[in-house]
Structure formats: C-alpha cells, structure tokens
Design a protein around this nucleic acid. Structure first.
Length: 155
DNA sequence: GCCAACGTTGGC
DNA sequence: GCCAACGTTGGC
C-alpha cells in the first residue's frame, strides 16, 4: 500500500505559501530534531510519496495543502552549520545524527482544513495527528486518511 | 537503568 | 500566557 505523510511547520517560519514560492527546485525539509521523526526521514520517506503540509502553532492550526517528495533521506546540512539554529555540535559528517528530505509544492487547499474539523471526522479517528498529546512532526498517513482529507478539501 | 528535573511542543 | 503531554538529560 502506498505510504503518505504529514509534515508539520510553523507558518510564521515556513508556510505553504513559502513552499509554493520556492517553485520546482523544492525545499530541504531540515531542522527536524526528534529521533522518531528522524527515523521516518532517514528510512521510510521515499521519492514521489505525497505529503500533507500542516500549519502548527498559529491562530488556526490545520492542513494547508500538499507536497511531493523529490529527494529521499540525506544528512541534514544544517546540523554541521555553526551559524544555523539547528547546529548540533555532537554530529559529524561520518556519523550524521539528523536527516532531511526535499519536497516540492503540489497544491494549496482552497481553504485550510482546521484541526478542529479533522477531529470530528470519523474516518480520521486513528490518525496520528488527532491522538492526544501527539507532538510528532513527521507522521505517517494511511491511503484511506489521504483520500478522506482530500475529499474534505474539495468541499 | 531509574527517575527527578528540566526543556519543548503545540492546542487552547 | 497557560499548561498537559512528552522527550531529554544527568546524577546516582
């Protein structure tokens, strides 16, 4: 079965509009500093898989649109950059600790689908995002969940 | 390996 | 800004 994902981002820092604006070159999804999320990026997120872009820590948190993976996991360059907020002095190029992938914008939903709406959809009851206390910033999404959310987005 | 203290996430 | 939930750190 095809694997889908949900990536969280704070729109004040990097929004779906920002992703759209970088165009076809895509964007390195860097700065993920959680081991469970790292493992997904390193081992399981593959080229051509599709991703929901989720806006967190903002007035209306929710799913803003979609992206596609154009490069699978590789060492996150920001961990080696002392000027980066994501610099990790304990990481070395032969033993990188953190990984990222590249994604490209595919669509922005006509309207963001708020978390509060997603929580009310029976088909999404098992979704990682709506589980209590889920802080995971890179999450697997099933094909059934992918379909249900795209249906919601079309209204 | 336990676990208290501390730090972070993120909705509200 | 509050605070619950969770992750990480570090002494022992």
């Amino acid at each position: 079965m095809k694997q889908y994902w949900l990536f969280k981002t704070e729109p004040d820092t990097f929004s779906i509009e920002d992703l759209r604006n970088v165009g076809a070159s895509g964007e390195g999804w860097d700065g993920v500093r959680n081991y469970q999320a790292r493992n997904f990026l390193r081992d399981e997120v593959k080229i051509n898989q599709e991703v929901f872009i989720y806006h967190s820590s903002c007035a209306t948190p929710g799913i803003a649109g979609t992206a596609r993976v154009i490069r699978a996991g590789y060492p996150d360059p920001s961990q080696f950059n002392p000027d980066s907020p994501y610099f990790d002095p304990k990481s070395t190029p032969d033993k990188p600790r953190w990984y990222c992938v590249d994604v490209v914008f595919t669509a922005q939903f006509p309207e963001l689908i708020p978390l509060r709406t997603l929580k009310q959809v029976p088909e999404l009851a098992e979704m990682v995002l709506v589980q209590k206390g889920s802080r995971l910033s890179i999450q697997p999404v099933t094909s059934a969940q992918w379909r249900a959310i795209n249906k919601l987005a079309r209204g």
